[in-house]
């Protein structure tokens, strides 16, 4: 049987992509292998680890649990799209660097996606709320502590400067 395909138009980080994709291609494989946006990572491919988190129309989802064809007409933001328009790091990204909220960097894009969305909905989260927001993102390096610190720092900085 031939590989069924479908044409899609997906906006990723503000850029529209029109292409023909195999229907079975997962969204994360589309981002990584087709668009070569390798910032989004694959950890488990069964929806537990959160490394593949991306923002779909404003909300974080797991890109291993969607087929690319389902994203047709939708807008995706990946870690590559989180920086400021001038390419400088967002306050959140900078805060991860400041507290060293990462080590190997593999879960980091998912953590950023999850906490970026958290801060949008809840500008002043408690440590408990941050932990809940990242509880769907597994990290093996940090013990989560410096990630929580980074998000709290980012929240303070955003509150005091108004900049993201």
């Amino acid at each position: 049987m031939n590989e069924p395909t479908s044409s899609v138009c997906i906006t990723v980080n503000g850029v529209e992509h029109r292409c023909e994709v195999p229907t079975r291609l997962s969204l994360v494989d589309f981002l990584r292998e087709t668009l070569r946006l390798t910032g989004t990572h694959v950890g488990c491919e069964h929806g537990i680890c959160g490394a593949c988190s991306v923002i779909l129309d404003g909300d974080p989802v797991r890109s291993c649990l969607m087929f690319a064809v389902q994203a047709d007409g939708h807008s995706i933001t990946t870690v590559e799209g989180l920086a400021n328009a001038d390419g400088s790091m967002s306050v959140l990204q900078d805060s991860f660097c400041e507290t060293h909220g990462l080590q190997c960097g593999y879960c980091t894009p998912g953590m950023l996606v999850a906490t970026h969305s958290l801060l949008k909905h809840n500008p002043n989260p408690s440590a408990g709320e941050i932990r809940e927001a990242i509880s769907g993102n597994l990290c093996r390096c940090t013990g989560y502590q410096q990630i929580v610190d980074a998000v709290q720092l980012a929240a303070q900085r955003i509150a005091s400067t108004g900049n993201r």
Partner: peptide, 9 residues
């Protein structure tokens, strides 16, 4: 149920 990302979808 699940986590933020799974509930969004």
């Amino acid at each position: 149920v699940g986590h933020v990302q799974t509930k969004n979808r």
